Simulated scan of single mutants.
Amino acid sequence: MKIGELATRTGCPVETIRYYEREGLLPEPARSSGNYRLYAEPHAERLRFIRHCRTLDMTLEEIRTLLDYHDHPRQPCNAVNGLIDDHLAHVEARIEQLQALRQALATLRSRCNGETDSSHCGILQELAQPEARELPAEAGEPSHVPGPHGRH
């Protein structure tokens, strides 16, 4: 099958398929005499595996590790458990960060009732104030909480 058909069958955009090939997650397909990529069912299965991992917000490195275990089924799976445990811990930390962010936004929202002009807006006044988080960070430490995709 050509790349367009693979994209349709898996719900994965063509550019993402090419990206996964460049990253070495998806093996290079055979080529037709006209130099078209020709994919087989194993490509679709692997792409579905990768996409499932991405829906779980796994990094490419985590996916690469899981694919290695998938491709070499005689390996003990304790490392797979460890990878998932680590990922779960990351998700838990992110949930805590997001809950703190929600609370900070709710507090900020409570500063304005919307019944005045913006020169007296409590939200804008609060945002203009320096925050404790903006104090110099210790060596190498960021002065803000990373966003949801801030991990390496």
Rank of each mutant, 00 (worst) to 15 (best):
Y19G: 00
M1R: 12
P76Y: 11
L26R: 01
T107L: 02
L127N: 10
R18M: 05
L6Q: 01
P148L: 03
N81D: 14
A106Q: 11
Q129C: 06
R9C: 04
T65S: 09
Y39P: 00
E126P: 00
V91W: 06
L105S: 03
G122E: 04
T16I: 08
L83F: 08
R37C: 08
I3L: 10
Q99M: 11
H70S: 13
L67F: 13
N78F: 07
G150C: 12
A106V: 12
T8A: 15
E115A: 11
L101F: 09
I123N: 05
E141T: 15
P13K: 07
A106N: 12
G140F: 13
R37T: 07
R133M: 00
N113H: 09
L67Q: 12
R18G: 03
A139I: 13
D57T: 10
T10P: 02
A128H: 06
R31V: 04
E23S: 08
R54T: 00
E28T: 09
I50E: 02
D71Y: 01
H70L: 13
T10S: 14
Q99E: 13
H120P: 01
A79K: 15
T55G: 02
L6K: 01
P130Q: 10
H144V: 13
Y69T: 00
I50M: 10
A132N: 01
I95W: 03
H152P: 12
G82L: 15
L38A: 07
G82Q: 15
A89R: 14
Q97T: 07
E134G: 01
I84A: 05
P146G: 14
F49H: 01
H120L: 11
E134P: 01
Q75W: 15
G34L: 07
A132Q: 03
V14S: 04
V145L: 11
H52T: 09
V145N: 04
L105D: 01
R18E: 03
N35V: 06
Y19L: 05
L25N: 04
E134S: 06
Y19D: 00
R111L: 06
H52R: 13
P29R: 04
L66M: 12
R94Y: 01
A44K: 03
L127Y: 11
A79V: 14
C121N: 09
R37N: 07
R74M: 14
P136C: 05
G4A: 14
E115G: 10
R64G: 00
Q103C: 09
Q97G: 07
I3R: 10
L25V: 09
L60Y: 07
A139L: 14
G82F: 11
P148Y: 03
E15V: 05
R111V: 02
S143D: 13
E15M: 06
H72T: 15
Y36S: 08
P73L: 09
S143G: 15
S143E: 06
Q97I: 02
C112R: 09
A137P: 12
Q125E: 11
T59H: 04
F49P: 00
S33A: 13
I95G: 01
G122A: 04
Y39C: 02
C53Y: 06
H144L: 14
C12P: 02
G34N: 12
L98A: 13
G140L: 12
P42C: 07
L135H: 14
D86K: 15
P73W: 06
R64L: 00
T65G: 04
R102A: 10
E21D: 04
G4Q: 13
C77G: 15
M1A: 10
T116D: 10
G11R: 02
L47C: 05
L66D: 02
D71I: 01
